[in-house]
Nucleic acid binder design. Structure first.
Lengths: 209, 209
DNA sequence: CCATTTAGATACACGATTGTATCTAAATGA
DNA sequence: TCATTTAGATACAATCGTGTATCTAAATGG
């Protein structure tokens, strides 16, 4: 065996080795995607051999799920408590986006079947497939605006799970952490106004106590 | 060759054959996903052989993209014009969801690397990976509700691209056409209120003429 | 320090898929 | 009808990943 590269002939065991394997699996997963992940590549990346992996996880699914859990256990997100909903949302969306962008990449790592091989993102694929610009919503909204039903400049491009659904959507589409502008839009121009609206006109719910 | 099954010994050519190949590719794509699609399976499904495919598309990517284009050219969505934004939205969301659910399935067909092999949907995967229920948004919103900042019952689970982003998100998560309840929620409890809000309080934009 | 465990290397047979080459016979056009 | 095209069958080598078996030597625990 070659001893020059890194650790001087040290042979890992137990948890340390396991962590290295799962890290390698995670990396392979984000790069190649689930269906592109091979035991071989994981073993090589972890500087070991296939049998070492097979002894722990005999199926790809279990290996991958273990790798994902391991990755997230490694850096848990602590939910912010700023004292206000707005502050919590800003903080959590920023945090979740930065820390979980790889989750979207991972989820898309499944998508990666197509995308990793071709270098396409989901958004790019949509563009390539749908043509350039004029899509349904644009047409309808333009029409609506022409009828005076809506002012597109007054309605930003972007309520309970809304911010998270939209963030997840954004992450899936771009494979990048969302921008500050995105968060501001979602929180201050969508979520909070909707909250206000529904608190003003919502059904007269009374707490059950 | 076997002549009993269907068409009596007729040998397809040109456009007819090409359409059959692309249909077969589409079907394989939705069933197996991009990375699970093989020239072999496509050929077999089209009742022909691999060389016939290779003569037209030598790469998987070009075959798949051609298949997707062919599929959507076959049944284009005509944008509804009901006379009102609300009506247009209801109609278009319904139509797009029904007709493009397979698009999400297709997009997820990429996701299918993991999901087709394991029978998981993206939503199921999220559940399995995140645990049972108590996630960020729930915690924060519960907190906010406890502070009286928000009434969860008054704010439904669900602005310009909002309905479509949310529908796309929904399709990706469930792999099913969205429900009428989903459309109603998005349109009447999210999008339209936001439109109203932003038209009332939006920036005083003046048409540039 | 010896016994036990187990990491890591290597090798193997197997199956699936690829891309091409070759041959035939069916469709088409002049 | 005859020449040209090309669909479709078949076969092939080559590659890649799988899953297992086997051997060695390093780590660990008593």
């Amino acid at each position: 065996m070659d001893l020059e590269a890194d650790g001087p002939s040290t042979r890992r065991r137990g948890p340390e080795l396991e962590a290295a394997l799962l890290d390698a699996a995670w990396d392979e997963l984000t790069e190649k995607g689930y269906s592109g992940l091979t035991f071989d590549a994981v073993a090589e990346r972890a500087h070991t051999s296939r049998p070492v992996i097979y002894r722990r996880w005999s199926e790809r699914e279990s290996l991958v799920l273990a790798a994902i859990r391991h990755h997230y256990d490694a850096e848990p997100i602590d939910i912010p408590d700023t004292g206000s909903l707005r502050g919590d949302l800003y903080a959590l969306l920023r945090l979740a986006s930065d820390r979980r962008a790889d989750m979207a990449v991972m989820i898309s790592a499944q998508l990666a079947g197509l995308f990793s091989e071709t270098g396409m993102s989901l958004g790019t694929a949509r563009e390539r497939l749908l043509g350039q610009g004029t899509i349904w919503d644009t047409v309808i909204l333009t029409r609506a605006q022409e009828r005076g039903e809506i002012d597109l400049d007054a309605v930003p491009a972007r309520v309970q799970s809304l911010p998270f659904d939209l963030m997840r959507h954004e992450l899936l589409m771009t494979h990048e952490p969302v921008s500050d502008e995105f968060i501001a839009t979602v929180v201050d121009e969508m979520f909070l106004p909707l909250v206000a609206h529904h608190m003003d006109y919502g059904n007269g719910v009374v707490p059950p106590d």
